[in-house]
Amino acid sequence: MTVLMAAGRMIVIIWLAATLTFFLLRLHPGDAVEAQLIQVGAASDVIAERRSQLGLLDPLWLQYLRFCAGLLQGNLGVSLITGQLVSEMIIQRLPPTLELAFSAGILGSVLGVLGGVGAAVKLPYGLSWVAKINLSLALSVPIYWSGTMALLAVSYALPTGSGAEISRFVLPVLVLAFHMSGAVGQMVSTNIRLAMDMDFVRTAHAKGLRPVIILWRHVLRLGLLPTITVIGLQIGFLLGGAVIIESLFVRAGLGRLLLESTLQQDYPVVQGIVVLAAAVYAVVLSTCEALYRLIDPRITR
């Protein structure tokens, strides 16, 4: 029953996000067809014909109904500029972004958990300090700046021409993962510090358990639980980061497509990508929340 309700809520949220995006984009007075055709110097009747072809002259409610019906069939409309199906354009540009977000997501989660634990507990050789400084850096360095620095470092370290593969895949993943590890790590270290202040941990200390065992058995179990949700929340960051990273490292992914479409005010494409992003985000987050409920014994099912 709770699963059904969670799924229902998720669908409502996706639908609302799609609706909001649709109407937000319709606030725009002109449209790309007009802008593009006027630039070419087309006559006004040509513009009108093109617009009626694309259904832009219909009343708003009809356009909206058509949008909703299309959404249910996985049809996101056609690009105003190229006339291509938006869903086709997205599928074409999806693999590089998927690859980037997936690899960076996994690496970032691992780094974040390690870094967060490292920053919260006392480690020898100043390792805790390293973890703390890394955490703050990951949170305060803008991603476009660290990306630039990484590119520069590679271009100095390797002879020109040999680092193509590294700068196309490894570097973007590393940069994105580093930044994601900041947010995850901060949450982890906060939660672990809270867990260390709990009464049962003090009791464990009092009865003479070794600190390593307390950490492993009591603190980490409690402190790492919320991490699942935090990692889910980072999907949004990964998708936003992909826009910057793809433009910085010249990867032909979804983020680049979104950027190009924004510049050209090609709103069916912008709408398609944003609706997809919202759907992915909602699905991942609900899954994480469901997992969290499943794992945490304190929440009764």
Binding site: I13, I14, T21, L25, L27, L259, T262, V274, A277, A278
Partner: peptide, 18 residues
């Protein structure tokens, strides 16, 4: 919550499109 499902920078880009 629906607006939150749209990543921050993407929401900004939607507004910029308009």
């Amino acid at each position: 919550q629906a607006l939150l499902a749209i990543p921050n920078l993407l929401l900004a880009l939607v507004i910029l499109t308009v």
